[in-house]
Simulated scan of single mutants.
Amino acid sequence: MTLTQEAPVTVARWIAALEAGWRARDPEAIAALFTADATYHQGPYGAPHTGRAAVAAHWRHTLSRQKDARMWFGDPIVSGDRAAVEWWCVLYDPATGAPRNAAGCLTLRFAPDGRCASFHEYWHGAPGQELEPAEGWLR
Rank of each mutant, 00 (worst) to 15 (best):
A84F: 02
A84H: 06
A84R: 03
A84Q: 07
A84T: 12
V85N: 01
V85C: 12
V85D: 04
E86Y: 06
W87C: 01
W87A: 00
W87F: 08
W87S: 03
W87R: 00
W87D: 03
W88I: 02
V90P: 00
V90D: 01
L91E: 01
L91T: 05
L91H: 01
Y92G: 01
Y92T: 00
Y92L: 02
D93S: 04
D93H: 06
P94T: 06
P94S: 04
A95T: 12
A95C: 11
A95N: 10
T96S: 12
G97K: 07
A98D: 10
A98W: 03
A98N: 09
A98F: 03
A98P: 04
A98E: 09
A98G: 08
P99S: 08
P99T: 04
P99K: 02
P99L: 06
P99I: 02
R100Q: 09
R100A: 04
N101G: 10
N101P: 07
N101S: 11
N101F: 10
N101L: 13
N101W: 09
N101V: 14
A102N: 11
A103C: 13
A103M: 13
C105P: 08
C105G: 13
C105L: 15
L106P: 08
L106T: 15
T107W: 11
L108V: 15
L108A: 15
L108R: 06
R109A: 12
R109G: 04
R109N: 03
F110K: 06
F110S: 09
F110Q: 10
A111V: 05
P112M: 02
P112W: 01
P112N: 02
P112V: 02
P112R: 06
D113P: 08
D113F: 08
G114S: 13
R115F: 08
R115S: 14
C116T: 10
C116S: 15
